[in-house]
Design a protein around this nucleic acid. Structure first.
Lengths: 142, 142
DNA sequence: TTTACTGCAAATTATTTGCACGAGG
DNA sequence: CCTCGTGCAAATAATTTGCAGTAAA
């Protein structure tokens, strides 16, 4: 059988995810775990993340181009969405989820909805303020 | 200045994206371009994709864990969302987008919305039919 | 002619895998 | 004990970068 043993590695990873309560990347997890267990390997992180995902305890989020983020689920039916600031990369919760009507519509057409993701990005209040002070030429070069 | 020249590489890549009119990965683009230009390098694909993205002619989509997909924009304000079948990986269009109320709400709170993504996955009609025929034990091992 | 764009090879980065050892039950 | 999980090193895979030659303008 698989992933039954209660290792300190697994518990640490799970704790970090629980305490964060926001999407964290494999790297973030690693740099925290390594403080407690200096010899831990990244492969251990990935293997445990995989296990947790298969047990439906965490969700995956692609919030940017180069890393995957993982979020602990308080309960198995929980689902959350996020807002990312392109300026400071801060991650905020999206308070509501307007997808249910669409889902029922799709189910009518024979598609079985398993999951969905919503993500919004833009500039947060703080960053907007700063770029105003700086003379609103923040996105000259795009 | 950058990305001004009309090279055959760039035109081919753009044509492939136009004809596809659905999200395609860098690899798919490569394997099509290479038939016309056998010596083309992948780096050329990536550099051109980058340029097209910076010119706001294409959008990026993270439809799965391991590749990024690119979609040509008919016009600069167009935006589309997708539904992916976890069975056959086929990509369908999501007919409507219910995000506007949320966006105006967020703008009220001082967040400047630049972009958003919605994605739904599940099992399409075809795949559902097949797994029914197969005895609905399609996801025994998850 | 000029200098941006390309092909090639090597470098990076995130993630995965094989294997022998060590720890959990 | 006996097997699963780990650390380590090497392997993949996607993407990026440096550089010298080539081709748009």
């Amino acid at each position: 059988m698989e992933n039954r043993r209660n290792t300190k590695q697994k518990q640490l990873i799970l704790n970090i995810l629980k305490e964060a309560d926001r999407p964290v990347s494999a790297n973030e997890i690693y740099s925290k775990v390594v403080k407690e267990l200096p010899k831990i390997a990244k492969s251990t992180i990935y293997r445990n993340i995989d296990a947790l995902f298969n047990q439906n305890l965490i969700d995956k989020y692609h919030l940017n181009d180069n890393e995957v983020f993982y979020l602990i689920k308080e309960d198995r039916n929980e689902h959350r969405h996020f807002v990312i600031c392109d300026g400071c990369q801060k991650i905020f919760d999206l308070p509501s989820c307007p997808i249910h009507e669409i889902e029922t519509e799709m189910e009518k057409e024979g598609f079985i909805v398993k999951d969905h993701q919503i993500q919004i990005n833009g500039i947060c209040k703080e960053c907007a303020k700063q770029s105003q002070l700086a003379g609103h030429d923040a996105d000259h070069n795009r």
